[in-house]
Design a protein around this nucleic acid. Structure first.
Length: 403
DNA sequence: AACGTGCTCAACCGCCGAGAT
DNA sequence: AATCTCGGCGGTTGAGCACGT
């Protein structure tokens, strides 16, 4: 149930803004400000536009100091790190990138960074319109609960209980960063069917094991100083909880609920899972320039972490410097990742990480797709079997944290 | 040159939370 | 406490452009 429209749509102009409209809006706001009421603003200045449209136009385009154009490597890295950690909270990510708008960042992620990191192509709209079952199931948007991606009925039935596309992307990204086997938990039991695939998929990704060692997902194995706490975004007076990387596997709604619980508990790191209390591990961010920068105050802060990015990030997990390097290297193709532009201009190839039997695992998105599709099935079926020793699915099985 | 396909990005849509009434 | 209004946000769309055949 939505709220009533903010304006009379019939009498409101839509579509691209003309230079005249831009000039009117800009001149008025620069002189008078918004007056605290966007809805009333268009009438005041004689624009046949919805107030929300004016707001958007101002914030995304007309506002002073807006940066347009290519993102720098550091900006990319910050976006990536934050996306892993907090998901598609574009406004918060944008707050860490002065001059960038959430819309810009969202677009950049969806059109470039996502492909760069996950090495996948979004299904074309034509394909989506045709409801191509392969694309729907295999192009990384399985189980999407959002409209327009997966409309076939079987998938839709699953999607209602399954992971959001955003969460799945974060899972995939983490898998790439941590190595699939780490994501499934090293305690995977090869006799357990649900873990067999994960064991089989264990890649020999160089060096990245350090990430999962420090970022260990199993609560009991986390070092105390790597335990999750609340991520607060001071300038927004808003609490965020790192859904712990793969806890991103939990539905966004579940994550939000967990967040709310944690926030309402005064930022306490504990929450009640079906098996009892445990703490959520955290994931830090990294900027390549962070070591040279002092925290500037404000921005994202992890309350037990070391300062990281200029905005003031901190934390363990990716927080250890060599681990930051791993992420940075990954982003910029030191490992020959899916990145298209390495530092030296060399165009790397997609890594083909090998299973013990020689089958490629990383770089083959169908592998991820198969797993994530399975995850959906497990979820629909109750999925307790995958709870043990598998924190991704553990969080997922929890569903909302209010159980 | 014509056509098909993919990509980019500005803009829209609808939901949510907060504050006001 | 209930309802209304608004700002804010994330997801999605579609026009225009680029590129390949």
């Amino acid at each position: 149930m939505g709220r009533a429209p903010c304006c009379d749509k019939a009498s409101v102009k839509k579509g691209p803004w003309s230079p005249e409209e831009d000039a009117k809006l800009k001149a008025y706001i620069e002189e008078h400000g918004t007056g605290g009421n966007w809805i009333a603003l268009p009438q005041k200045i004689g624009l046949k536009r919805c107030g929300k449209s004016c707001r958007l136009r101002w914030l995304n385009y007309l506002r002073p100091n807006i940066k347009h154009g290519d993102f720098t490597e550091e900006e990319e890295h910050i976006i990536c790190s934050l996306y892993i950690s907090i998901g598609s909270r574009w406004s918060i990510i944008a707050a860490q990138l002065p001059g960038r708008t959430d819309n810009d960042i969202k677009n950049y992620w969806n059109t470039k960074l996502k492909k760069k990191l996950l090495g996948k192509r979004a299904p074309s709209r034509r394909a989506r319109a045709n409801q191509d079952p392969y694309l729907a199931a295999g192009a990384g948007n399985m189980c999407s609960t959002s409209g327009g991606v997966n409309n076939n009925s079987a998938a839709a039935a699953t999607s209602t209980q399954a992971l959001s596309a955003s969460a799945l992307e974060r899972i995939q990204l983490h898998m790439r960063l941590q190595g699939i086997y780490g994501a499934f938990g090293c305690s995977a039991d090869a006799n357990d069917d649900s873990n067999a695939a994960a064991v089989a998929a264990a890649p020999q990704w160089p060096k990245l094991e350090a990430l999962l060692q420090a970022n260990r997902l199993l609560p009991g194995s986390l070092p105390a100083d790597a335990m999750a706490t609340t991520v607060s975004v001071q300038q927004h007076h808003q609490h965020l909880v790192d859904h712990q990387s793969l806890a991103a596997g939990a539905s966004d709604a579940a994550a939000v609920e967990g967040e709310q619980q944690l926030s309402s508990a005064g930022g306490a790191a504990n929450y009640m899972a079906p098996g009892g209390f445990f703490e959520r591990p955290k994931l830090g961010f990294y900027s390549p320039s962070a070591e040279a920068e002092a925290p500037a105050g404000g921005g994202v802060e992890m309350n037990s972490g070391a300062p990281m990015v200029g905005g003031g990030y901190g934390g363990a997990g990716f927080g250890a410097h060599h681990q930051h390097d791993e992420l940075y290297d990954f982003l910029y193709s030191k490992y020959g990742s899916v990145g298209e532009l390495a530092h030296d201009g060399h165009v790397p190839t997609l890594p083909e990480l090998q299973c013990p039997d020689g089958a490629a695992v990383v770089g083959a998105d169908e592998k991820f797709s198969a797993w994530t599709a399975s995850a959906c099935d497990y979820g629909a079926a109750g999925g307790h079997q995958i709870q043990q020793g598998n924190s991704i699915m553990h969080d997922y099985v929890l569903g909302g944290y209010d159980q």
